[in-house]
Amino acid sequence: MASVVPRKSHNLRYKTLMAWLFTLPGLVVQLVFGWLPVLFAFVVAFQRYYFIKDPEYVGVNNFKEVVADPLVITAFQNTLWFAFLSVGLTFLMPIFVSILLMEMSRRTIRVMMILWFIPVASTAGIAIWKYMYHPNLGLLNGILRGLHLPEQKWLDDPVLAMFSLILPGIILFGPGLIYIAALQNVPEELYEAAELEGASFWRKIWNITLPRLRPIIAMMLLFSVIGSMQVFELPFIMTGGGPGYATTTVVMYIYSLAFGAYNLGKATALAIVLFCAIMIMVGFQRRYFPENIDESSENARS
C-alpha cells in the first residue's frame, strides 16, 4: 500500500496543476480586461487627465465639476426618465406573453417562437425604426396621414423623442426566452390542484405562476434596470442625443466627454457617479423586491 500514497499525492498535484492551467487564460483575460480597468477608473477619476499632457492628481476636483455641470443633471434626468419609461412600459409584457404562449399546443409554440426570434442585426433594427420615424417618408406618419390624424415629428420633437425611443419595444412585444424556460419547470400538479379547488385562469396566474417566476422576475428586473441606466447605442444612433439635449443619456455624455472633449478625468468621474447611482438602485431593489420566494409568501400569508 505504501506505493499508493505518493502516487495519489502526485495525482492530486497533477490535478491541481491541470486545474490552474485550464483556468489561466480566462484568469488573465478577466484580470487584465475585467478588473484592471475598473480599478484604474478610480485612479483616472482623481486626475486631470487629457491625452496630450501628463496627468496630475487633483483630488475630488473632477467630481466637483461633474456635480456643477448642468448637462450632467440633464443627462441624469433623461436617463432616469428613459429607465422609468422603458422598464415601466416594456418589462411586464414578455412575462405575460410567455405565460399565454404556454396555452398553445407544442407545435404552435415552436412555430411562434421561431418566427418571434428571427434576428435582425441590432444597428439594422435601429435603422429600420429611424426610417419609420422619418417625417415625410416614414411609415408612422404615413399611417397617421391615412387616418387623418395630426402628423408627429417623432425623433425631432423634444417631448416625443424619448418616448419614440421606447415605442419600438412596446410595439414589438414578444415572449422572453428565460421566462419560457422557467415556465416549463412549474409542476403541473400545482395547476391541477388549483383547478380542483375551482381557481380561475387569472387566479392561477396570480397565485401559482407569478410566485414561481418570482426569482427570475427579480433577476430580470435587476438586469433591465442596470441595462436601461446604461443605454447608449439606441439614443446615440437614433437621435444623437438630440433634439438639443433631450435624449442625451449619462453614458452618451461620458462618451462625449472622453472622446469629444478628451477630458478623461471628468468622464471617468461621471462614470463612477453613475456606477454609485446604479448600485444604490440595486440596493433598494434587493431590499424591496427580494428574490426569495418563501419570504414573500410568508408575508402574504400573515
Binding site: 478577466q30 478588473w35 480597468p37 501628463d54 453614458v251 478623461l264 463612477i272
Partner: peptide, 29 residues
C-alpha cells in the same frame, strides 16, 4: 472573481480600457 464583473456596470471602464488598449499592458498615458 469571474462573475464579479457581471454586477459592475461595464461603462465605468470605457476610458481605462481605451488607455489600456492604446499601449497594452500599461493603463497609463
Amino acid at each position: 472573481f469571474f462573475m464579479g464583473t457581471l454586477m459592475i456596470p461595464g461603462q465605468i471602464a470605457i476610458v481605462p480600457r481605451f488607455l489600456l488598449l492604446s499601449h497594452f499592458p500599461w493603463p497609463t498615458r
